[in-house]
């Protein structure tokens, strides 16, 4: 069940402001890192909604993001639509794809759900990879960023673009938190806990799961637009299943089912990657070791574990003061 504690708000604001400051004071390279973190964090939040709260561990979130990016490219490059409606179309495509996957896999659970999402993701990847119209494995270029000159903002500038992605990250977090605190989000937690009983209480769980993956897909779609606008070039690699695996690693690293944890995980993952790769090409190994440590420590992830310790200390403190009261 989702709750927004003061500690979560504080960590969220700390990270968001930290990212903006890092971009503002850093080099072009630092801003690239901030953009990378923001996009990965949005994907991780999207996956946390599905997996952490809904219990649907998906291996097609990379593909969902890629669908959004490709739809954006098709609408704006092939059909010459302006960037804003193209982006709306891209996000809508991701939501529809997510809903469809959720609907079709609605009666599967556990490992079968994971395999089904993997298959859907790879199907989308293969379709795009083989499509000459979409450039095949060469990908597509000629993309544009939003024209925000009417606001006095030039998104072509690396700092503006970095701040823009952080703002998007904040908005995505708000949207996710809002929905998780609604009746819909409450029911999603119930579905995760005991799907059969929820059905017996009168909820059509297939529809609910489909809608939840649709919403999760919508958030991943935002990341797709940002990814396309970031490099102004897209390739089928966006949809490859290892991208989805990486998102899952980030969520587990930060803390499944905490919503703030995935953001922390994204910061850590990207930082580790860049710091460690200065010394060795085997940065994956270091990330792997950190992941193993996080899983063995109880599987709560880094943010989740700290939150757990804090709650534990609060409980102990309460018991102590209660005992003192008794004495």
């Amino acid at each position: 069940m989702f709750f927004q504690s003061h500690a979560r708000t504080a960590v969220l604001l700390f990270v968001l402001i930290g990212l903006v400051l890092y971009a503002a004071t850093g080099s072009y390279f630092a801003r690239e890192i901030v953009v990378e973190i923001a996009i990965l964090a949005i994907l991780a939040i999207s996956l946390d909604v599905a997996a952490g709260y809904g219990g649907m561990v998906s291996l097609c979130h990379g593909a969902i993001m890629g669908m959004s990016a490709y739809t954006y490219a098709i609408l704006s490059v092939k059909f010459g639509l302006p960037t804003l409606p193209s982006a709306v179309g891209g996000i809508a495509a991701a939501a529809v794809f997510g809903t469809a996957v959720g609907w079709i896999t609605g009666r599967t659970a556990g490992i079968f759900f994971i395999m089904a999402t993997l298959a859907f993701g790879q199907m989308a990847y293969t379709l795009i990879f083989k499509s000459r119209w979409l450039g095949g494995d060469d990908g597509m270029g000629g993309l544009d960023r939003f024209d925000l000159s009417w606001l006095g903002i030039n998104l072509g500038d690396s700092l503006s673009f970095a701040v823009y992605t952080v703002v998007c990250l904040g908005l995505v977090y708000l949207a996710a938190a809002w929905v998780l605190r609604s009746g819909f989000g409450r029911t999603l937690s119930g579905l995760h806990s005991n799907e059969d009983r929820l059905q017996a209480l009168g909820v059509n769980t297939v529809i609910h799961r489909a809608r939840a993956l649709g919403f999760s897909g919508l958030l991943a779609g935002v990341a797709g637009i940002l990814a396309a606008q970031h490099t102004l070039y897209i390739s089928p690699e966006l949809l490859f299943w290892t991208v989805s695996g990486e998102i899952l690693i980030v969520v587990i690293l930060g803390g499944l089912g905490t919503l703030v944890g995935p953001i922390v995980g994204a910061v850590l993952f990207v930082m580790l990657k860049h710091e460690v790769s200065e010394y060795t090409n085997h940065w994956h190994m270091v990330v792997g070791l950190v992941l193993i440590a996080a899983v063995l420590a109880g599987g709560r992830g880094i943010f989740g574990q700290i939150e757990y310790w804090a709650a534990d200390r609060r409980r102990a403190g309460k018991e102590q003061s209660a005992e003192a009261g008794d004495a």
Partner: peptide, 22 residues
């Protein structure tokens, strides 16, 4: 939370997107 889930389901508030059924 258990009881609220049951009540919200029966009262058709389980899919509210903008309001907290609890």
């Amino acid at each position: 939370e258990n009881l609220a889930l049951a009540a919200a389901s029966a009262q058709g508030k389980f899919a509210w997107m903008s309001r907290d059924s609890f």
